[in-house]
């Protein structure tokens, strides 16, 4: 509700500035220009949206599998944790802007290189909170399980994994927020479709309003994914959250 009011206020101010200052439409399109562009180019936006949505969706699934797998592995073995964690952190300093064109050269212009980049950006925010939660479960609960003679697997199955579930969702929400940027970056480096590709094409064509419309579509998609995750978390991990409350 508050978000809607703030959004309206920003849009109102933007519209007024664009109208009153007489600024060129290709420098700063007004919200209504963007809306018109979105309607006129709806077919173009939809086709390119599907490409980017696939990159983000599949990329996030890859990140999830990779992130959870790594978290479990590093949790299982202290040696692996000491050996691999620094490398994982180092992986986040890879300058994506420079690597993306190389990946496109190696792997082609289709889905492959985009998945690599989305996964590279998105697995890290999943690993860190999940790993922390796995290794910081309540000592009393650990003692209880030890007293019942639980195996390592049973400890994971009955205590550690459920305890880490809310943290996994937190990581996923962070990953969703950065997935769009990663996909757009990957597309600008080499691709023939996608919203990122559309944006980079639209600016030199002086179709700035279309580029803005592409940004709006991407934002709406990210916000919807985030909200869907919150709803899913409420179903899967209801103990961690109040039953009602805002989705965003």
């Amino acid at each position: 509700m508050l978000a809607a009011l703030i959004l309206l206020a920003v849009l109102g101010g933007w519209q007024a500035y664009a109208g009153l200052s007489g600024i060129d439409e290709f420098l700063l399109p007004s919200p209504t220009d963007v809306l018109n562009a979105a309607w006129d180019d709806r077919g173009l936006l939809w086709d390119n949206f599907r490409v980017t949505a696939e990159e983000m969706g599949v990329g996030l699934v890859v990140s999830l599998v990779l992130g959870v797998g790594l978290a479990l592995l590093l949790h299982r073995s202290g040696a692996l944790r000491r050996g691999l964690y620094p490398l994982l952190i180092a992986s986040q300093t890879v300058p994506i802007v420079l690597v993306a064109p190389l990946l496109a050269a190696w792997l082609g212009y289709d889905l492959g290189p985009k998945l690599v980049i989305v996964a590279l950006v998105c697995f890290f925010p999943i690993v860190v909170p999940t790993l922390d939660a796995l290794s910081s479960t309540d000592p009393g609960q650990r003692k209880l399980m030890a007293g019942l003679g639980a195996s390592r697997w049973q400890l994971l199955r009955f205590v550690e994994a459920p305890a880490a579930l809310p943290a996994l969702f937190t990581g996923l929400r962070l990953a969703v927020a950065v997935a769009a940027i990663a996909a757009v970056l990957a597309e600008t480096a080499g691709s023939e479709s996608g919203l990122g590709h559309l944006m980079t094409q639209s600016i030199p064509q002086l179709e700035t309003a279309r580029a803005f419309a592409a940004v709006v579509v991407l934002s709406l998609f990210s916000v919807s994914l985030y909200a869907a995750l919150t709803l899913a978390e409420r179903r899967v991990a209801p103990w961690a959250h109040p039953p009602k409350g805002p989705v965003l």
Partner: peptide, 26 residues
């Protein structure tokens, strides 16, 4: 079998599943 200090019930499980934990582990 130990009942540690504090109830150490699992917050995600119902009372039934908490009570059943020792059996599940066995």
């Amino acid at each position: 079998v130990l009942m540690p200090q504090g109830d150490t019930l699992l917050p995600w499980a119902t009372a039934l599943d908490n009570a059943a934990l020792a059996l599940r582990v066995a």
